[in-house]
Design a protein around this nucleic acid. Structure first.
Lengths: 111, 111
DNA sequence: TTACTTCATTGCAATATTACGATTAATAAA
DNA sequence: TTTATTAATCGTAATATTGCAATGAAGTAA
């Protein structure tokens, strides 16, 4: 059916999945890296930088905004984008909690 | 066109995106959490645990295997799954590198 | 006002993903 | 051998995603 059965999973699991989706496309990874790299608001030309059509990039930015990882403010003719520090931190913690625990399979009787 | 233009991006960006896809569905998050939780090989019944059809779960497991995060060995009637420690570590580092750097936007003249 | 610029939105087409029933393959148990 | 049992695969349907041209909206500059 192509539709995720969200109700089967915990809120946490759905949240992690939603966050992960933000990184699940190289263009969005590239955008986020750019925003981090410049270490502040971005005013450059993502269309030139990424090589995708303007409409496509706008769509990716929208997706990132919907997850909340980035925010943008209109300033005159152009829009400035930057990472939302609060959400970024939450994302970071969410990911850390996934990776934090040790796990086995170091034992030889395993897989 | 529904097809990602992989060639426009760096190998690293594509890799991160591929890894992120492993987490981009709550069922796969649930599976990975389960594998970590039990801290070794899994022989339980994911169908009962997750509430999805057997075919669907098999599909998710295949996806995870293709990324390399998990591995499975056939032992008699059933298959044991566990996280691949090597790939898991790589994944962890990849994610850390994304989140590691500080970024601005703390300044008030920003967004 | 009339361009011009820039980003968002709309409307498509192509492809990918999610889900499941049915089938198949492989082993274990009788 | 026959009969479970278990997981992978196939086929199909529904929905989501990706990408872009065209258009729209809102400002700037002339």
């Amino acid at each position: 059916m192509g539709v995720t059965k969200t109700n089967l999973f915990t809120e946490d699991q759905n949240k992690i999945a939603a966050f992960a989706k933000a990184f699940a496309h190289p263009a969005r990874v590239a955008i986020l890296q750019k925003l981090k790299e410049i270490n502040s608001c971005y005013n450059g030309d993502l269309v030139v930088d990424l090589g995708l059509a303007q409409a496509t990039i706008s769509q990716h930015l929208k997706a990132l905004k919907e997850v909340g990882v980035i925010k943008g403010t209109i300033s005159g003719t152009s829009v400035s984008y930057c990472i939302d520090p609060i959400v970024w931190k939450e994302l970071n913690e969410e990911m850390n909690s996934l990776f934090s625990l040790d796990f086995g399979c170091g034992s030889e009787d395993c897989c």
